[in-house]
């Protein structure tokens, strides 16, 4: 997508987020909030897992930390202002993400995955055994916080759009190109003068900050935090499934994946396990048959149709259809 069209699409989405609450029933606000959280988390994971090519399996950690920082900040004897608590949640998550990246950077790709997952599970197990953090019962947020469904809708929508815009901007900057170079060939990238360690740390910090922000919003919406759901592996699984199905490393893929996966999750609420099974199988099919994800599949199919269409037309010798040579991808060795 060209830069102008992308900017236009982003502006359109922003406008939709601003006016939507006036047009929707209350339940729509809750559903919309869920979609923004899902899409925003998928997009923030994409910064590390897609664009930088590091298959992180521990993003649930940042969601959980974000949620707990807000819960702790608002239940202090001298409670922090809400905005400060959310900002703090993002800073703490970012620091944690950067630190874990720095600690795990020397590892081969697959060990990095396992280490991030291990850290997330260790954190969950630690919170469960920590009375100061409410152990298994968790923490209930104060009831007088200035939040309601409409504000949460705007906050989550704004943060998700910010994540989307950031992704769209990053892939066009030299910074984004360096990240992708590290993904494609770390050694070659290092020899070209970029610093892979610094790049991976910064991508993790950015991704962790955003995931922590969404975690904070989740805590505010649920009005409580509890270790099993705040640090649930389910967050990570959803982020990855949405990302891969939509298009790993693309700008709009994670959003598309989130709409599809979250949509079916809501529609098939009572068949959650079957839905998970089918979604996981779709993920396997996508990675095997269309590694670019569904966002690439549409244009590819269109191009193929366009290549095929002229054939019968040319036999009829009355071709007003576009000739094969206008299609961007030339069929090789085909008449």
């Amino acid at each position: 997508m060209s830069a102008q069209r992308e900017t236009a699409a982003l502006a359109g989405l922003a406008l939709a987020v601003v006016v939507a609450p006036a047009l929707m029933p209350d339940y729509g606000l809750v559903l919309g909030f869920g979609l923004f959280i899902a899409a925003g988390l998928a997009l923030s994971w994409n910064l590390v897992g897609g664009i930088t090519g590091q298959f992180a399996l521990g993003h649930a950690l940042y969601v959980g930390v974000g949620a707990y920082v807000v819960a702790l900040g608002t239940t202090l004897a001298q409670p922090l202002p809400l905005a400060v608590a959310v900002a703090l949640a993002m800073v703490v998550s970012a620091t944690l993400a950067a630190a874990s990246a720095a600690a795990f950077l020397r590892m081969r790709a697959a060990y990095f995955s396992v280490a991030t997952m291990g850290l997330a599970l260790a954190a969950m197990a630690w919170v469960v055994t920590s009375p100061a953090l409410g152990a298994t019962a968790g923490i209930t947020l104060p009831g007088d916080l200035p939040v309601d469904d409409r504000r949460l809708f705007w906050a989550a929508g704004g943060l998700a759009l910010l994540t989307l815009a950031l992704t769209a901007w990053i892939v066009r900057t030299p910074y984004g190109l360096s990240l992708m170079a590290v993904r494609d060939d770390e050694q070659a990238a290092a020899e070209c003068g970029v610093n892979p360690l610094l790049l991976k740390c910064s991508a993790m910090a950015l991704s962790g900050a955003l995931a922590g922000g969404f975690g904070a919003l989740i805590a505010l919406q649920k009005q409580m935090v509890e270790p099993m759901s705040a640090f649930s592996m389910g967050w990570t699984i959803n982020m990855i499934m949405m990302c891969v199905i939509g298009g790993l490393g693309s700008v709009w893929g994670p959003l598309l994946g989130a709409v599809l996966v979250y949509g079916t999750q809501q529609a098939l609420d009572e068949l959650a396990v079957w839905n998970l099974l089918v979604t996981a199988l779709v993920l396997i099919a996508v990675i095997r048959l269309a590694p670019g994800g569904l966002v690439e599949l549409g244009p590819r199919l269109l191009a193929r149709l366009r290549r095929r269409a002229p054939r019968p037309a040319s036999t009829a010798a009355a071709s007003s259809a576009p000739s094969p040579s206008t299609s961007p991808t030339q069929p090789q060795g085909q008449p």
Binding site: G49, F55, A110, I240, L248, I284, I287
Partner: peptide, 12 residues
């Protein structure tokens, strides 16, 4: 990443 993603999908 593809093989890792696939085994992750298999696991889920």
């Amino acid at each position: 990443e593809a093989p890792l993603v696939a085994t992750f999908g298999l696991s889920i």
